[in-house]
Amino acid sequence: MEIATNSSNHHRLLKSSSNNSFRLRSPSLNSLRLRRIFDLFDTNRDSFITVDEISRALILLGLETDISDLDSMIKSYIRPGNAGLTYDDFVSLHRSIDDLVFGLEDVQEAVGSKEEQEEADLTEAFKVFDENKDGFISAKELQVVLGKLGFTEASEMERVEMMISSVDRNHDGRVDFSEFKDMMKVLK
């Protein structure tokens, strides 16, 4: 019965977020993204994510949820004796949510090449950063996204500008999609 309750909670928590914007199919990108998210949620750096830490992070991202639903869903993934989710527990939770939310879409998805899918994933990731939708990521846009995710670099525009210049091949002070793709290939 607990599994059914958890499944219901997953649906309730995630029913409004069933688009593929943050779902990257490249295993290396997904692993990197999950590690960064885990580290962001683990605000006290104790290698555990508590329900309170997840709730605070979701609120910062504008994704408020019912704390009791969140608590009941996450508790089933916390190993006995632990204060919260370990990274491995977090990965298991992510897989469970991923399967629940996107499983049917995977079955129904049209067959496309791996390259086409990676391109689509990168396009969606780029859109997250390109807030004004002008086709470029400016230092200000990067700063806003980093700030929402809780990165300390966001408070120093100089560091954000350095991040931009490190991938800005044409030196125009912003990152276009081609430069973004090259940067992501290096991260693979």
Results as ranks from 00 to 15, higher is better:
4 A>H: 14
131 E>Y: 11
177 F>S: 03
107 V>Q: 08
22 F>N: 07
145 V>E: 04
133 K>I: 14
155 S>D: 00
68 S>D: 07
74 I>F: 00
180 F>C: 06
85 L>T: 05
91 V>L: 02
84 G>N: 00
69 D>A: 10
72 S>G: 14
114 K>Q: 08
18 S>A: 14
65 T>G: 04
183 M>C: 04
42 D>F: 00
141 E>R: 05
96 S>T: 10
141 E>Y: 05
169 R>Y: 05
146 L>V: 04
24 L>P: 06
82 N>G: 03
181 K>W: 01
173 G>Q: 05
32 L>H: 11
87 Y>H: 08
114 K>N: 13
16 S>V: 12
50 T>S: 02
83 A>N: 10
12 R>W: 10
136 F>G: 10
88 D>I: 11
85 L>D: 02
134 D>H: 14
28 S>I: 15
26 S>F: 05
138 S>P: 07
141 E>A: 03
60 L>K: 05
95 R>C: 14
89 D>F: 02
144 V>Q: 05
36 R>L: 10
177 F>I: 08
15 K>H: 13
66 D>I: 03
64 E>K: 13
93 L>M: 04
109 E>Y: 10
25 R>E: 12
159 R>W: 01
61 L>S: 03
90 F>K: 05
59 I>R: 13
77 Y>F: 06
47 S>T: 15
35 R>H: 10
90 F>C: 10
77 Y>S: 01
136 F>W: 14
153 E>G: 09
122 L>K: 09
124 E>Y: 08
27 P>R: 06
133 K>P: 06
63 L>M: 15
85 L>Q: 02
